[in-house]
Design a protein around this nucleic acid. Structure first.
Lengths: 251, 251
DNA sequence: TAGATTGTTAATCGATTAACAATC
DNA sequence: TAGATTGTTAATCGATTAACAATC
């Protein structure tokens, strides 16, 4: 019986598993892009404070990386400083915005308008970053409201909406038990970018439709909290803090 | 007699505490812990499906890593398999739960009960992972409700609450403009673990109170969405297709 | 035994860090 | 000039991958 179970397990897992799409990269990888986005925010603040130029070690201090990394990152997107004068904030800022695509519209759609989904829809911070939530989608008729400023539409309207509005990025905030099903609908609609708030490990299938250009990011809050507990606990026991038991040396 | 009892009691407690503190090897880093947590979820599913054992390549397929990594990770926490029979799901699961601290209570508090904070408070998925939200805190009297099942208390009650309940982890969901101020209060209350939902780059100060045992994780939704746009755009231009509309189907 | 899988060691890869020449 | 900062190259570090002996 055990043998059978274990053969079944193998087959099932192999069938379920989907290929991972390799994110082809020039010489700018995701880690760099994330840092660039953080430099951009610091630069905006500095500009609003009236500063003109900035040194790599300033940006490093503000973002928690070494000056050498800042210089290397900026160099990777062809941003040049002046040998003793640092980087011009204004020019750097513009180049970063262009590289990161902040000059284009960033319209996203929320799929799954439960509590978290609706909370994100009214999240004011996005506007400041140029991200615009243009619609929500849900199967539940009770939350649908086609005439609201940000309309909440039925799931059936997803495909036509994202085509007509050229939506590229979707935020997936459905319950875990609906994750795979709804994700398949999102994939079928041709969406190449998904921010996954469920704790299901979704993956883009290796179909022709999104052969290499599809990306999914995961925001797994439960996993993050778990990890925090683990780290706090281990740090604590490493420094030998909470357990009052003394070292039994003498005796 | 009392003295003897006391000594016996002390020894017993020392033995118990020493036994309960898991023998954590120093070469376990955050990446490993995150993977372990994902193995754990897969194992739970497999167990609920009635499976008995699992191979490293199964776990690898299900979590998107190579079998060698799975074996190395499990080996790092002293989980041993059988040379040809793979890993016993039940035993592996128990060990992982102990190592990751899932057998202890994981009580967290929400600081900032705006839309996102309240959405997290009623998030059903946490319960399933053993994470319990025991209270919320907010300065706004309109959202305070001390008698609700999960009470929302004034910020002034934070310090005494976390002390009396021994809270270690806080979820910070306040508006960006209040982030640093509220974070300072959280630090002052002695909290060692923070999940930061604001887009402000908060850091624990190097004070004595939490000199090495403090951790902060960042969930920067705006940054994630930005990054998605960037990746989708670059992938698309790399593969040389300007619009995603052209899908080859039979007409 | 033959085949399969673990556990671990060595090789590889990539990213970070350090160093320093160029130069303003 | 003297001092400071960039841009890039080399050194280091760590994590992943490959390989394979052990062994069930």
């Amino acid at each position: 019986v055990t043998g059978l179970l274990f053969i079944l397990a193998k087959i099932t897992i192999e069938q379920i598993t989907r290929f991972e799409v390799p994110p082809l990269e020039p010489n700018i990888n995701q880690a760099i892009v994330l840092r660039l986005a953080r430099y951009l925010r610091v630069l905006r603040k500095l500009k609003s404070m009236g500063f003109i130029k900035v040194f790599s070690n300033n940006l490093g201090d503000a973002t928690g990386v070494t000056p050498a990394v800042v210089r290397k990152d900026l160099s990777a997107v062809s941003i040049q400083g002046h040998k003793r004068g640092g980087y011009q904030i204004d020019a750097t800022l513009h180049t970063l915005e262009r590289v990161l695509g902040k000059d284009e519209r960033q319209e996203v759609v929320i799929v799954g308008c439960g509590k978290i989904g609706r909370a994100l829809m009214s999240h004011p911070e996005f506007q400041r970053e140029g991200i615009q939530i243009v619609a929500g989608f849900d199967i539940n008729p009770n939350v649908q409201s086609p005439d609201a400023p940000i309309p909440i539409l039925p799931m059936s309207a997803l495909a036509t909406f994202v085509h007509s509005r050229h939506i590229d990025v979707v935020v997936l905030t459905v319950p875990d038990n609906a994750a795979t099903e709804v994700f398949d609908q999102v994939v079928a609609a041709g969406i190449p970018g998904v921010l996954n708030f469920t704790s299901i490990e979704l993956k883009f299938p290796p179909t022709a439709k999104c052969r290499s250009g599809c990306v999914i990011h995961h925001v797994n809050i439960g996993l993050e909290i778990e990890n925090l507990f683990y780290l706090v606990r281990t740090h604590r026991s490493a420094s030998g803090e909470p357990t009052p038991a003394a070292v039994p040396s003498e005796r």
